[in-house]
Amino acid sequence: MISSRFSKALSWAYLIALYGFIFLPVAVLVLFSFQDGRLPVPPFNGATLKWYAQVFADDRLMSALGNSLMVALGSSTVACILGFCAAYGLARYILPASRLQRGLLVAPMTVSYLIIALGLLSTFNWVGISLSLWTVGIGHVVINLPLCFAIIYASMGDHQKNIERAARDLGAAEWQVMTQVSAPMLMPSILAAFFLSVTFSWDEFIISFLLSRFDVTLPVEIWSMLRSGLNPKTNAVGSIVFLVSVALLLILELIVFRRTAKK
């Protein structure tokens, strides 16, 4: 049938066009990070790694990168621990107003980061807490806690509940049940929550921008680089950030994949 062949061709054309649209900026970003010239725009003058060398030689960028990693890992760890405990408490015990509690815990998810940042900024100013990487970390826990809680809570099924009960019957104390039975069983979703938080925190701009002062995170440093206009060095940093995020995504995918394979 001609019409079905035509619609098939049309589908593939559409698919290719949209993937082209989705990948165009990333491709341009990475390609011109190798630009042997001062402008990251066509024509492409040939490949060089000097912009990457400049990135790694840039102390401010490197310390921003370190700060970003520190904040991302620290805030995600806190968010995961708080989220896990809350999920454990709400899934395993009957508490009054548990619906309200769940609603409160996921509420920050529905509010723009800008508003969360502004609220924290007003409060820190009011209380007299000076801005630092700590305040950025606090903000990142606020945005990641709902995520960690929701992911871990969703994975706490009745199946695990029975195993936990068995452990308790065999004389395990509550903290033993939690650390030696529940946490290992839920490890895939805890790790998924952790890595997702790391990527979100690693990428986050507006909270980091408003709540930091002297030490800044990588997105904020990149933001200040943008003021000098188009520059292959910015492309190089951007490509590195992209690679790191994709690596994190791959780890996440492998964990999730392993989990589904086990089932």
Binding site: Y19, P25, L29, G238, V241
Partner: peptide, 18 residues
Amino acid sequence: AILPFWTSYVVRSYSWLL
């Protein structure tokens, strides 16, 4: 389809500028 989602927010807008 969601791969470019993982480029940094700031970087993604900058890429479109290019």
